[in-house]
Design a protein around this nucleic acid. Structure first.
Lengths: 207, 207
DNA sequence: CGGATATGTGTACCACAGTACAGATAAGCG
DNA sequence: CGCTTATCTGTACTGTGGTACACATATCCG
């Protein structure tokens, strides 16, 4: 406190250490979920001493929050890019794209989606997580609203969450046709499709 | 082992003790979630000594499983009764009934629904819970299939899960109109409703 | 009624994990 | 080059919680 120092008193030896800790935290979350997130697991993963994790983040809550922020950020970024690439799809195209999206999420981004759901559920009992969970859910609706009408966007968003939940819950993989019929039911009027008569391959029993 | 005893060697002093422990476990789950489920909390709640909880259930997993079974059972029972009472609704009636159902779930059965979601999410990392989580999700679809076409039933089920997730996640209560438009989007063809032009009051921003 | 056996419980052990903090280390300055 | 000060880390403390298990208690049979 001598010279009214304004700049940070000293630069840290490894300026990326904080970042690496967050990254490691995300990795631990993906691998073991909220339940498995511990200071020690993060420290091990990041290759830093245990003390570092509490040095850069006062409490485990803070650390978790920082990591979840990054996860949600990845989601919002991904979704915006996805929508941009889609342009102005027709109803059928959108149904197809959403099917692709959900199947990809379940198959290739399993851990990410699981963490997203864990965040949502955790936010139900921990108000401190509400904000992030809301950002997540509102992003979906906001992005879909650029592709269809507001009402359908809501329905699609809800269905998307429900389907990914189902896909990750059921032991067998969710049939692609199953997913697609749901989105078509929302996006295309009954008439063109036949009054709901299911496609031959779309009638697989719900797992 | 003297007389080849076949009947259970002796009746327990309090034959309802086991049941009371399960009930207490459910209560703890409702109040504090999976995270907060501990032997001690259950014992306290049930008014039994700590040892009892491990006496009747070898492990915490077992206890949790028994309690979740009861929660899911309550859900399936409720849903079947709900569908029975509905009879053969029109599309509009069904949309209304589902709106009522979701709003009621969020407002009056909050803790129950939260536990349901906790079960679903937990089952993603714990295969031992898959079976129960599946029973839960498949019940919804099965019940709805008695009220509408299979494809719409799936869409409704997915949307229902997504909406309750959203309702429990968002800080402000989910507007009733918001919920209803989603179900109407699935259940009623575009034409009669106007091509998706939202109702005046149904356009509340997503929370 | 007394002993044998099933039934139930209080206590203690152990592992895990969040966090505090005394010290170690390194950077700047005179 | 040594002192001061900020930066970092190893270790230890503490609370929590699952589970084991030695004892207590109750039932039944002879």
């Amino acid at each position: 406190m001598q010279h009214d120092q304004i700049r940070p008193p000293r630069g840290p030896a490894d300026p990326q250490r904080r970042e690496r800790i967050i990254t490691a935290t995300v990795d631990v979350l993906l691998a073991h979920g909220m339940e498995g997130l511990t200071h020690r697991a993060v420290a091990h993963r990041a290759g830093v001493p245990l003390g570092s994790t509490t040095y850069y983040f006062a409490t485990l809550d803070e650390l978790r929050h920082a990591a979840l922020q990054r996860v949600v950020g990845a989601y919002t970024g991904y979704m915006h890019a996805w929508a941009t690439e889609l342009g102005q799809p027709t109803a059928v195209e959108l149904a197809e794209a959403m099917t692709e999206l959900v199947c990809l999420a379940i198959d290739d981004f399993t851990e990410h989606v699981i963490v997203d759901h864990e965040l949502s559920v955790a936010s139900m009992r921990q108000p401190r997580l509400k904000e992030l969970a809301c950002l997540y859910s509102s992003t979906t609706v906001a992005v879909l609203e650029t592709l269809t009408t507001p009402v359908k966007a809501r329905a699609l968003a809800a269905a998307m969450d429900g389907l990914s939940l189902l896909g990750l819950t059921s032991p067998e993989p969710l049939p692609r046709a199953y997913v697609e019929t749901v989105f078509r039911a929302i996006l295309t009027p009954d008439a063109p499709n036949g009054p709901d008569a299911p496609h031959a391959d779309a009638d697989t029993e719900a797992p």
